[in-house]
Design a protein around this nucleic acid. Structure first.
Lengths: 255, 255
DNA sequence: CAGGAGATGGGTACTAGTACGAATTTCTCT
DNA sequence: AGAGAAATTCGTACTAGTACCCATCTCCTG
């Protein structure tokens, strides 16, 4: 069947259609081609079929080198992240500024790269660049005065906030408010801007700062802190913990 | 041509296959059936085909009553949200506790209902229940001492944090750490629990509280967050808006 | 060197969402 | 009332991801 005798029939536009050389496809090649497509044409143009076509092989062939499209994207995104996550500022110059820049860069990255947002929303990301970034973030947080445990909590909070914001911002892009949409909706949408991100980020960082100075007693490098912490306290930590409202699906919250 | 003479041939398990009565399908019926499927079998069982089959009509028939599956989900999710978002506590008893409970309920909702997470990650949600909830959230925030503008900012921060957290928590559920995954990853994943949500939420609420008590009119000095040097605004992705395919679409439910 | 095990390239086909257009029923206007 | 317009139901088919299994190619082992 491989022998497509092309002498007759369908006169033009017929590629030889030979089987690709054995071993000519490698994971690196697949990832590299995918990166090129994303860079040149964007994430939405990257499909298994387009990728295979670009490489001159059959779609299913790729599955011998990547276990799924998500697996491929994991690696693609890791490469992309590795090139942009690191802040220009140095941690030693102040944890606040460093963290703020790191968060901002990450937000920008997620909004710029739909593939990345997809990956980060799909599953925990543990690729090399992601782990490296996490380590540095934790270092900065420890530097703020938080202990190991609190640093992780704070990291999780920053991470959640950033990803959530990026998801909202990205979804807003290209949103077409239906005719008749309440103005409130527009205003709300308008609050999904990089500027608003920084505002919300400040809430989180201020919370971290307060916690840090409360815990470790002596300030570490407060030179970087822009405002004096007006550490007055008001309402205490609330307790709630509702029983599940709806009997929905599983929640299975554990490691 | 519809007359499928069923007297002979394929002896069993053959449904008459008549055309559904004219006008027997309505948007309300579609939404109602979808709600039932979600309740009984879960979001992943809700497909256009399964829904059509359940209603005894052809898949494409539904598209005369909903403009897309996402349009349908918008309404389904609004119904679900309407039943669970309201906190048991009263705002008057304290804005902190009320906001904390509202956020927790929302997180729980998003994790319990994958459809809801999908919707909230896809586009700004302006359905009735969502708007009602937003109004109440803003009321609580104003009650904390924030002015209108700051209240919206705080709302956006809370919203982003909650959705981001829910997305991470949901994606973690059912995640299978690969056989060589670094232990750090596990630990990190373990930080995506309802308890951790409350911890992070406290950071945000503390930040809000500080802002509220600080400025009943005093413009809190900006200058806190440095700009990312390489930052470039605006969504990078190519825009693509859906130009309202066919009829169906209700006026976006008040929004 | 023959044979078989694995690895690798491919064709076929199934599920999902949905565009297109044909067939059918109801409504509107003259 | 009759005819065209509009609404509605549905069959066909296209894109994407990917499960299944066959065909081919390499290499290891007896």
């Amino acid at each position: 069947m491989a022998a497509r005798d092309n002498a007759v029939g369908t006169p033009q536009r017929e590629v030889p259609k030979k089987r690709a050389a054995w071993g000519s496809v490698t994971r690196e090649l697949v990832v590299g081609t995918a990166l090129r497509i994303v860079a040149d044409a964007g994430y939405e143009q990257l499909t298994i079929r387009s990728l295979a076509s670009e490489m001159g092989v059959a779609p299913m062939t790729l599955y011998h080198h990547v276990s799924s499209k998500d697996d491929l994207l994991d690696e693609v995104v890791d490469h992309l992240l590795g090139e942009v996550w690191r802040p220009a500022a140095r941690i030693e110059k102040g944890w606040w500024a460093w963290l703020a820049e790191a968060a901002e860069r990450f937000r920008q990255f997620l909004v710029d790269q739909p593939a990345a947002l997809h990956v980060y929303l799909s599953h925990p990301v543990v690729s090399p660049a992601a782990l490296a970034r996490m380590d540095e973030m934790l270092r900065a947080l420890r530097m703020s005065g938080l202990d190991e445990h609190e640093a992780r909590r704070a990291y999780a909070a920053l991470h959640s906030y950033t990803i959530g914001f990026a998801a909202l911002q990205a979804s807003r892009a290209g949103w077409r408010p239906a005719p008749g949409t309440k103005p409130i909706a527009h205003q709300l949408a308008a609050y999904t801007t990089p500027r608003q991100f920084k505002e919300g980020l400040r809430y989180v960082l201020e919370g971290i700062e307060r916690r840090a100075s409360a815990g470790a007693g002596s300030p570490v490098g407060d030179a970087a802190v822009p405002r004096a912490p007006a550490g007055q306290d008001g309402a205490g930590g609330p307790e709630q913990s509702r029983p599940e409202p709806n009997g929905g699906r599983r929640d299975a919250a554990s490691g």
